[in-house]
Design a protein around this nucleic acid. Sequence first.
RNA 1: GGCCCGUUGGUCAAGCGGUUAAGACACCGGCCUCUCACGCCGGUAACACGGGUUCGAUUCCCGUACGGGUCACCA
Length: 564
Amino acid sequence: MTTESNRQSRLTPAECDALARRLFPHITKRPEEYEEIYPPRQLPQGAYVTRLGPSPTGFIHLGNLYGALADERLAHQSGGVFILRVEDTDNKREVEGAVELIISSLAYFGVRFDEGATAEGDKGDYGPYRQRQRAELYQTMACRLIRQGRAYPCFCTEQELTEIRERQTAAKENPGYYGPWAKHRDLTIEEIERRLAAGEPFVIRLRSMGDSQKTFTVTDGIRGPLTMPENDQDFVLLKADGIPTYHFAHVIDDHFMRITHILRGEEWLATLPYHWELFQTLGFEPPVFCHTTVLMKMEGETKRKLSKRKDPELGLDYYRQLGYLPAAVRSYLLTVLNSNYEEWQLANPGTVMTDFPFTTEKMGSSGALFDLDKLQNVSKDVFASMTAQEIYDFLLSWSAAEAPEAHSLLAKDPAYVKAILNIGRGGENPRKDLIYGRQILEFIRFFFDEWFRREDAYPEQISAELAVALLKEYASAYDFAEDNTAWFDKVRELGVKHGFAAKPKDFKKNPEAYKGHVGDVSSLLRVALSGRRNSPDLWEIQQILGLERTQARLAQAIEELSKL
RNA sequence: GGCCCGUUGGUCAAGCGGUUAAGACACCGGCCUCUCACGCCGGUAACACGGGUUCGAUUCCCGUACGGGUCACCA
């Protein structure tokens, strides 16, 4: 804007002083006192102090966890502090119990705070940690700005603001409250006095000294040097109810809580000039800004930022309900957050996630699509690295909350369930077919008589009559004590005796000569015993089912097939 | 629309003036094999476009296109 609009306040220092007292009669502290109340932290060199500042709207999704994880890693791996600060300056949006939900959801996924709002109340020396309770601090700072002529009361009504915007749109000017458009920027003290006396509601606006024709440069912790136009907007500092806007609260809190690194989504990039001017005006040393990318979702042909309202399936609760392993979700998010995490993990087997040196430099700056395939793959790997006992413990606690109908069955016979979970586990290359709680229940359901049912058809190349004969013969010859090899040899013999090829290759070479091959015979057994055409090793399944249940299922299949 | 950020295979992404342009997921073959899964081997597939700068551009600069974000007394 013109230099005209950058001029100092029209009010004299004495008038500013009087105005400050008039506006904030209850403010007794001076900003300097707060510097002492919230002294610089005594922390090791290079320690990060980060914070998560959710607004208590009662919904938290993958994107929030994504950011929280970065904050958490940076703070904790550097010996720093991670704070939860509740940004409740908008009472219209507040939802009952939201803070508790946020804390418990994040805790479930392994994100813990050192300081700030907790379920038991505030913890730490830089509180209170709910912004509405810090009103006096913000007002003290606003009072100082008024006194310095760097802020002023604005009595504009919503209508007047709309009008201004309309005129700006018509004139093709940038919208906003700035420069010549800021009509209450230079009210006389008498006019202000008159309106105050009349009880008109007002907000406190910054008197911007910026020039949008000029630029400034900040070095972003993720994106490197960023050049942006200076702010020239007289944006609102304190709302009519005396509560600060995000912009004002953020700058003051991050200063007095001695935050070193501000991680926030890129949606804040556009207002960075606001914050920059505020840091300068208040004389605060700005922390390092780190603007992360947002997590995106594919919608039709285009990508879109995850939305609270449109994407309930991306809520943290959703993954908890499905029974995703917290470690898997964390690990997946880390692969997106830090591009070299995956390779590090591959190169350092047997390490835990917290050993990984997380850096802001390795964070990407273009929006990443949420990739369910990848999450599932990561999840499989995590389950594959766990013992049956660990998986059992997880399933038990998860099902208690999210799958009560399965919980009692899982709890009834721990040894049985663990034996099931142990199939194909323990070797160098464990099976990777466990993804999440619900899916695991589905995967193992046939082991339980309560859930067992035939899901697939018997092999069509075997007639019902022959199938019955095979099953009967198999059942009477079945020896529970035989080992895997001896057992399969017997299945093979049985097949050969009835005209099946001993090897699939023999059958392929000469299909006319056989009724099928040994695989068809075991398919028959598989369907009879598991209800499915595909399953893990049959011998193991029988060992786990036990002799009695095995025989019962064979009998059941014989009966079923006899009716055909 | 103004401003800001971004753009390497379907996805996540290495790369930071000279590479046969990594790797992971997904997909497709093959091997192993009684099915599934695992594992192993192989394959398809990318530097948005146009100008510069340079001996040489994926890499640097400028445009264009496309995508995203933001323009509140919400955060």
